[in-house]
């Protein structure tokens, strides 16, 4: 977008800015909800978990709003080329963000259960994994905001470290679970929480792939070839 001059129809520019800003805002909301859910777990703060669950409604509303905005732009202005890709990408990213917020809700609900039980120190092991997934999400949203497919590619390249981190953390919890009788349910919840964090990382990769499509018009999903400028 930044490399182009404005449209003759200034309302078209306004509408494109509106959908972009709404999507970036929704991204910030999804990050906040995830952060509240994990902090609720780590800091044993039920109120933060409740906030993450309650704020998911905002994300749902944002998704619907972005879809409506996108459809309005498609019917009113009939965008083409990079404009078309921007609108389609924003609508798809909104859907990924809504699902990320759903993962945050799942994490928050399990966290409320975990923090009801006596404290277990192993909970802190989730934090390292969270940082990996959260950093991927932040970079994916930044890449979308800046139209930066190189940054998006760096998110996609985090897939292996994400899987490795998930495997390592889950294995620790699963192993402990086998020998635990008192906290076995908490450890089971932590295994699930890790699974949802991994899903957040996967969805961040999906967002990054959309950014590459928007920026280069190349669909790289499902292992398709990268555009020459990113190889």
């Amino acid at each position: 977008m930044s490399s182009h001059q404005g449209h003759i129809l200034t309302n078209f520019d306004d509408a494109l800015s509106q959908i972009k800003e709404a999507t970036i805002g929704m991204g910030a909301g999804a990050q906040r909800n995830l952060n509240n859910a994990i902090r609720g777990l780590i800091e044993r703060n039920k109120s933060l978990c409740d906030t993450a669950i309650a704020d998911d409604d905002d994300e749902d509303r944002s998704e619907v709003e972005i879809d409506h905005l996108g459809m309005r732009i498609l019917t009113k202005y009939r965008p083409l080329a990079s404009d078309l890709r921007m609108v389609i990408t924003s609508m798809k990213i909104a859907s990924h963000l809504e699902r990320i917020s759903d993962q945050a809700v799942s994490i928050a609900k399990r966290s409320r259960k975990v923090i009801k039980s006596p404290e277990i120190k192993d909970v802190l092991k989730v934090e390292g994994f969270y940082k990996v997934a959260s950093s991927m999400l932040t970079n994916a949203i930044t890449a979308y905001a800046d139209g930066n497919s190189e940054l998006a590619l760096s998110v996609i390249e985090e897939e292996k470290p994400l899987k490795k981190c998930h495997k390592t953390t889950s294995r620790v919890f699963a192993k402990t679970l086998e020998g635990e009788s008192e906290h076995y349910r908490d450890y089971l919840d932590l295994v699930f929480i890790c699974r949802w964090l991994e899903r957040v990382g996967d969805l961040a990769i999906n967002i990054a792939e959309e950014v590459v499509f928007e920026d280069t018009s190349t669909d790289i999903r499902h292992g398709r070839e990268l555009p020459p400028e990113l190889q």
């Binding site: 003759i8 083409l80 080329a81 990079s82 018009s217």
Partner: peptide, 19 residues
């Protein structure tokens, strides 16, 4: 041409940016 034109001028025209 309509999804990913090679030349900026084409893109500017088809997307209504000439002016």
């Amino acid at each position: 041409i309509f999804t990913n034109p090679s030349i900026k001028q084409t893109e500017d025209y088809i997307s209504g940016r000439f002016g």
